[in-house]
């Protein structure tokens, strides 16, 4: 079954502010495995699209953290994961949406991204 991974940006990805341990190379690696990827951040959705386009990385979605559960309506896959650095936002919304959750450092070592 297909997998979907949503990435927070700030504190999670190397391009975030502050930078996190998840690299663009890891996102590309996931996409190469057929994983559906995109971002789920507090950054404006238009800015999230601009980031992916700036770095030349294809994406399947952008959304806000509190709308994570909407992705389940958009993509029917076997497993859903969110990667983020905030307990009260990323982890909370991931759990509420029925997503698996990884802290950024955990994700950076996960075979799905390597």
């Amino acid at each position: 079954m297909a997998i979907l991974i949503s990435f927070d940006i700030d504190g999670t990805m190397e391009i975030g502010d502050p930078p996190g341990p998840v690299t663009l190379k890891m996102v590309k690696a996931a996409r190469a495995k057929g994983i559906i990827t995109g971002s789920c951040s507090d950054r404006p959705m238009s800015a999230q699209r601009a980031i992916w386009e700036e770095y030349g990385i294809e994406y399947d979605f952008v959304c806000y953290k509190h709308l994570l559960s909407d992705l389940k309506n958009q993509f029917e896959v076997g497993e859903y994961f969110h990667v983020g650095d905030r307990d009260d936002l990323d982890r909370k919304y991931a759990i509420r949406a029925g997503f698996g959750f990884f802290w950024p450092a955990e994700a950076a070592e996960n075979p799905l991204l390597l």
Binding site: D17, D42, R43, P44, M45, S46, A47, Y64
Partner: peptide, 16 residues
């Protein structure tokens, strides 16, 4: 200086 991001109606109206 740091994040020259415009805001759209969608950005604003869907924000948490």
């Amino acid at each position: 200086q740091h994040r020259p991001e415009e805001l759209t109606a969608e950005d604003y109206q869907l924000a948490r």
